[in-house]
Amino acid sequence: MIKAVIFDFDGVLFNSREVQRKALNESYRLVVKNGQPSFEEFLSHSGDSIFNILKKMGLPEEMAGYYLGLIKENAGGVKIYDGINELLDQLRRDGFRLAICTGRDKKSTMQLIDMNSLNDYFDVIVCADDVLYPKPNPQILNQAVGQLDMVKESCVMIGDSCNDLICAKNAGVKSIAVGWGDTSEEVLKQQKPDFFVRSPEELYECIKGRELLLSVNY
């Protein structure tokens, strides 16, 4: 029986795509000067920390400070997805424990939580700078489960990236992939999530039964 729902942040709760694109391009311009980084490659590493993403892309570590500053400066451009407030209300009313498990840094995560008055929804928030090893390493999800004081069998991870789904698999936690984020349905299904949903309304219907089968259900 599912008792706790653990959400990724960007691409699941919030649409930050354009703010991330602009922050990546501007931080690249400030440090590298010429050319433009691949935003598609950047998105393929979603869920990991900005420091690890830059390293994987072969980009200068110096970009991270500029990137994080630009993300904070342009937080007003990050919008909560339609239907998410209603989803969180419904899950809370139904008695589910809620958590966030994100590759974002703590400061920018809490900034958006505060700006959108979401503080009362979440029991636990674990960010990339709370752990040594971000997604897809299971440490960040294991920490969230531990802080919720739940067994893994009672939890489900909601994600929009391959790293989210791999993290859940590595942690032994059920997963639901969402189709409104930054990764295509085809790519997500290659990771064999337990469920795939296309809207917050469908996500609620999937969760509220509290019994998620281990077989793939699309």
Rank of each mutant, 00 (worst) to 15 (best):
residue 190 Q to G: 05
residue 67 Y to H: 15
residue 10 D to W: 07
residue 217 N to P: 03
residue 210 R to Q: 14
residue 54 L to H: 14
residue 180 W to Y: 10
residue 111 Q to P: 10
residue 155 C to H: 12
residue 71 I to V: 13
residue 142 N to T: 00
residue 91 L to D: 01
residue 198 R to W: 01
residue 177 A to H: 01
residue 77 G to R: 00
residue 26 E to N: 05
residue 169 K to R: 15
residue 119 N to K: 13
residue 199 S to T: 12
residue 158 I to F: 06
residue 28 Y to V: 00
residue 160 D to T: 07
residue 57 M to A: 10
residue 97 R to G: 02
residue 107 K to L: 10
residue 52 N to D: 07
residue 200 P to L: 04
residue 154 S to D: 14
residue 145 V to C: 09
residue 130 D to C: 11
residue 3 K to F: 03
residue 27 S to R: 00
residue 157 M to A: 09
residue 89 D to K: 14
residue 196 F to N: 08
residue 33 K to W: 06
residue 17 R to H: 12
residue 66 Y to G: 01
residue 201 E to R: 08
residue 103 G to D: 06
residue 11 G to F: 05
residue 75 A to P: 02
residue 114 D to L: 11
residue 132 L to P: 02
residue 131 V to N: 01
residue 208 K to S: 11
residue 85 N to F: 14
residue 118 L to C: 05
residue 96 F to M: 06
residue 85 N to R: 15
residue 47 G to Y: 05
residue 104 R to A: 13
residue 51 F to G: 07
residue 110 M to Y: 05
residue 31 V to S: 09
residue 41 E to P: 09
residue 201 E to P: 04
residue 58 G to A: 14
residue 44 S to G: 03
residue 187 V to K: 01
residue 38 S to Y: 01
residue 186 E to N: 08
residue 110 M to P: 10
residue 127 C to G: 09
residue 65 G to W: 07
residue 179 G to R: 08
residue 52 N to R: 10
residue 162 C to Q: 08
residue 26 E to S: 10
residue 150 M to A: 14
residue 14 F to D: 11
residue 76 G to C: 13
residue 185 E to V: 12
residue 17 R to D: 11
residue 14 F to M: 12
residue 212 L to Y: 04
